[in-house]
Design a protein around this nucleic acid. Structure first.
Ligand SMILES: Nc1ncnc2c1ncn2[C@H]1C[C@H](O)[C@@H](COP(=O)(O)OP(=O)(O)OP(=O)(O)O)O1
Ligand SMILES: [Mg+2]
Ligand SMILES: [Mg+2]
Length: 914
DNA sequence: CGGATCGAC
DNA sequence: CTATGTCGATCCG
């Protein structure tokens, strides 16, 4: 994006033709942007028509929503403006608007500086990319996006019939989460404050949120979705993507009866309201004589088909609720995608009494757009034919593309881009003005290309909690609020078994200005005190910064990121170490791992390694609280440096250059690096062993690995590990560390074998650990000595020798030629898809946690953590019977206060994965 | 890399 | 009176 010295030899003027449509808009928008800025300074209102409300376009109505077509926008915007003007919120929106206009002006001058040569270059690059993308276009999948209609509102209307014919919204006078379609006719929609909505429609009924209900309904809907695609991906409580390809294949073979479903013809208050497809369908299907049915028949005359049994009591009365069945028909759905989706939507409605809309297309981006097209209670399909796709996408306004919001729309509009067709027309300008990533996305959009596979759920990356409150300015009050939030955050972290490293404080002043401030802890934690210590510090700095003014806030939030999951292991290494630190040491929480260049693919491994490093450090701290290491963070930085070196060495062609400068041809796709990750992890483990400088460590590690490998093949015996790993008492503290490291190094086993045997292995590790643990806690300082004497160069040479061929026989897991790493990985790699195909359920061999389609790398990290954790846990329970498990102990029924855990919404990149 | 911005529900 | 809460991605300095 650098201006890169626009030595405009021939400024745009000469090449008008190519961007003809661009010119007038350029001028117009630059002009209007300038007018906005100057106009806002003397805020003239009233006299003009609507120019006052377009002044702050961010405050005018978003009608980009189903059910909001053809509104009297002018009237609505006027009301919104009248209700907003002069408010602090409005003033802040104006400020934001001004900086956005500034940004647009910069963009425009950049666009204006494009030379003819640059333009030509842009065209060439764009066309090349377009060809590549076109070549890889995949129309073979049938992707479906399902989205409930006016979800929260629909649930409330279902449960309170008096609401059904009224404009209503869900939320509060302060903020609405959604509205029903009647209310949308008044311009009332999500993210609008209730008091403004009331001005638009005084009769509006506002119903408070009931998250527990929405969550329950959501689960019900998901049950149905899973029948069509067990790997479906829910994007929020009310929508999901499915890949119907497989279902459609099977659907053709399946018996007709599997496509027959009941459909109530009218809702009667006295009749059974159960899902007829659950309580009645199975009974009817028993009675049906398929031979009597016409193949083409789609609506079946129930009375005729079941004339022989329709008077039977159990077919007249619901056995669940005891009420009479309502009138219904039996519908036979076809085998097409359209019919399958009709069937699915019908089943959702029969089951939940709520309607859903759906989109069918070859990729998620198009499917998402389609699901909105016939909302509510409708569906739309784009046939998987290139020409159809092109036709559909070309006419589409870019604002309809998920991921393109108000701001991007405005930026594009300034470049003459309104429709997706314009994206293609203006491709040379876009190439120059936007980042390579954005440009890439735009070209995908122009072609109607998106992700044609449903991504498995990514690991969560942050957990946060924030509250809006009445003005607070007293430092005491602010700190109290901060602590309260930290407590809530800690509770959430523990509930979901996460520990994290980076604490971020968010504040919003009474004038709606938002700031965030972050601090990275020295150890992974979910502990309230640890979080609060960090958050308070950040807050105090901010209070300090505005003095002698007082920091007057309307919102505060705390977020934890750099997360590591410790799923379902009932006691964590982290909490163990936290306890030790609380008891023993004076919290020296300053040191943190130096900056990491964590690539996506190695995130888990690196995180695990970081975690390990933290754990070892914490272990050391807790064992030897009196010692002053002087170089506390030396260890960490050495460690991190080593990891980085490994990564650099193993990813020679890594393109880590910032993409900001216009890279000419750095569009090479990166080969997947999973096997490297495995190797890295092993290398890291060896690094740790080396770092601990114990002659027996490598040996122990090997033995442990081998032990586990052998057990996995059902030939191992405990003799090996017991005899070889038992350390002389003099080395006991060192060996404790070794055991921890050992257990973190992954057992080379396949899943089933682990399920059968790993417990024994862990226990044997455990026995050893217990012994040495007790002696080390009594004050042996060999570990400390080892750590202090460790020498980086020696470590490096040890690493390289560990990676060289000589070690391979002893260290199967570090074989680099084997995809996925060593034997364990290989076994895992071949077993996982197998077992997941039949049941899809994978369970952690250590803690037993089950997860659907557990991704290999995540499973591995999880097992690592579990193993080390369960080891420590057993030590703990052996030593002390006290303390809380992180399990929430309060059974007091609490209402859920948020719809947390919304995952990567439909943001640009997510639509273009493979 | 931290912080701001954008986008989504 | 009264303008949310939660999360992920990207960009810029
Ligand atoms: N800005 C928001 N803030 C808080 N909650 C929201 C917001 N937007 C949406 N939600 C919640 C309430 C919605 O019912 C639910 C699903 O969102 P979404 O599918 O976009 O709209 P909707 O289901 O209410 O209407 P429809 O899908 O028919 O347009 O998510
Ligand atoms: Mg919806
Ligand atoms: Mg939705």
């Amino acid at each position: 994006m650098e201006p890169s010295g626009p030595v405009a030899l021939s400024p745009l003027g000469g090449s008008d033709d190519l961007v003809a449509s661009n010119r007038p808009i350029d001028g117009q928008l630059a002009g209007s942007a300038g007018a906005d800025v100057s106009g806002s300074s003397h805020g003239r209102i009233g006299a003009g028509t609507i120019s006052c409300s377009t002044l702050v376009s961010s405050m005018s109505l978003n009608d980009n929503k189903a059910g909001m077509e053809g509104l009297d926008k002018e009237r609505i915007n006027k009301i919104i403006y009248e209700a907003s003007k002069g408010s602090k919120f409005y003033e802040n929106e104006r400020r934001k608007e001004a900086t956005l206009n500034l940004r647009i002006q910069q963009q425009q001058s950049l666009a204006a500086s494009i030379t003819a040569a640059q333009l030509q270059f842009g065209f060439r690059q764009a066309d090349q990319l377009l060809r590549d993308l076109e070549d890889r276009r995949d129309l073979s999948h049938t992707i479906v996006h399902v989205d409930m209609d006016a979800f929260y509102a629909a649930v409330e209307m279902r449960d309170d019939p008096s609401l059904r014919d009224k404009p209503m919204a869900v939320g509060s006078m302060s903020m609405l989460s959604t509205s029903n379609y009647l209310a949308r006719r008044f311009g009332i929609r999500a993210a609008m404050p209730g008091f403004i909505a009331r001005k638009l429609c005084p009769e509006l009924v506002i119903v408070p949120l009931n998250f527990d209900k929405y969550i329950a309904v959501s689960e019900t809907v998901k049950e149905i979705l899973a029948l069509y695609d067990p790997n479906f991906s829910a994007m929020s409580l009310d929508e999901a993507y499915l890949d119907l390809t497989e279902h459609l294949r099977e659907r053709i073979q399946a018996p007709v009866s599997s496509r027959m479903f009941l459909l109530r013809t009218k809702d009667c208050s006295t009749a059974c309201r159960c899902d007829l497809n659950m309580v009645l369908r199975p009974l009817l299907l028993q009675e049906v004589d398929l031979s009597q049915m016409q193949a083409a028949e789609s609506e079946i005359d129930v009375n005729q088909l079941f004339s022989h049994c329709i008077e039977t009591e159990h077919l007249k009365t619901c056995s669940v609720c005891g009420r009479p069945f309502p009138s219904f028909t039996l519908k036979v759905y076809g085998v097409s995608a359209k019919d399958a989706v009709l069937e699915m939507r019908n089943r959702i409605e029969q089951r939940t009494h709520l309607t859903a809309s759906a989109g069918i297309a070859a990729n998620t981006m198009l499917a998402k757009i389609c699901s909105d097209k016939n909302k509510p209670n409708g569906q739309f399909q784009i046939e998987p034919i290139r020409e159809h796709v092109q036709q559909f996408i070309s006419a589409l306004p870019v604002r309809k593309i998920p991921g393109i919001g108000k701001v991007t729309e405005k930026l594009l509009e300034a470049l003459g881009v309104i429709t997706c067709q314009d994206l293609h027309t203006q491709r040379a300008v876009l190439y120059r003005v936007f980042s390579p990533t954005s440009f890439h996305h735009f070209m995908n959009i122009a072609l109607g290309i998106g992700s044609s596979v449903i991504e498995r759920d990514a690991e969560r990356k942050s957990i946060s909690t924030e509250h809006t409150f009445g003005e607070l300015a007293q430092p005491k009050d602010l700190l109290n609020k901060c602590q309260e939030l930290c407590q809530l955050l800690s509770r959430d972290l523990k509930k979901d078994r996460f520990v994290g490293k980076t604490v971020t404080l968010k504040i919003k002043t009474v004038s709606f200005e938002v700031k965030t401030r972050a601090h990275t802890l020295s150890h992974y934690s979910s502990d309230e005190k640890a979080i609060f210590t960090a958050a308070r510090h950040l807050l105090e700095i901010e209070i300090e910064n505005v003095q002698p003014e007082c920091l007057c806030l309307r919102l505060m939030g705390v977020r934890m990121s750099k997360l590591v999951s410790e799923t379902n292991c009932s006691s964590s290494v982290a909490s163990f170490f936290e306890k030790q630190r609380r008891n023993n040491s004076t919290g020296k929480n300053v040191a943190c791992l130096s900056g990491k260049d964590t690539e996506d693919e190695s995130r888990d491994v690196t995180a695990a390694a970081s975690y390990l490093s933290s754990s070892v450090a914490a272990l050391r701290d807790s064992c030897f609280p009196q010692q002053d290491y002087g170089g506390d963070d030396d260890d960490d930085t050495d460690f991190q440096e080593c990891i980085d070196n490994i990564k650099v060495a193993e990813m020679p062609h890594e393109n880590r250059a910032r993409t900001g400068s216009k890279a000419v041809n750095n569009r090479a796709t990166q080969p997947h690096q999973l096997s490297h990750d495995m190797e890295k992890q092993d290398t890291i483990v060896h690094f740790l062993c080396s770092k601990l400088n114990c002659p027996r460590l490598g040996e122990s590690n090997c033995t442990c690995d081998q032990c586990m490998v052998r057990r996995s093949h059902a030939t191992g015996s405990l003799g090996d590990i017991n005899s070889e790993n038992t350390a002389p008492s003099g080395n006991s503290s060192v060996c404790q560390a070794s055991v921890i490291v050992c257990s973190v190094s992954r057992p080379s086993v396949d899943i089933d074998s682990v399920n059968k045997t790993s417990k024994g292995c862990v226990n044997s590790t455990l026995n050893l650990t217990q012994t040495v643990s007790k002696s080390s806690l009594s004050g042996v300082s060999d570990l400390n000595a080892a750590l202090r004497c460790s020498d980086l160069s020696a470590v490096r040479s040890q690493i390289s020798s560990a990676n060289s061929s000589g070690q391979h026989n002893q260290l199967p897991a570090s074989s680099s030629s084997c995809p996925g790493g060593g034997q364990r990985s290989q076994a895992l790699g071949s077993q996982t898809p197998e077992s997941s195909h039949s049941s899809g359920m994978i369970h952690c061999p250590v803690c037993g946690q089950q997860k659907y389609q557990w991704p290999l790398d995540q499973l591995n990290v999880h097992i690592d953590l579990c193993l080390s954790r369960s080891t420590v846990r057993e030590i703990l329970t052996d030593q002390q019977e006290d303390q809380q498990g992180p399990v929430p102990r309060k059974r007091t029924a609490q209402v859920t206060k948020s719809d947390k855990r919304v995952k990567t919404q439909h943001t640009l990149l997510s639509f273009f994965k493979p």
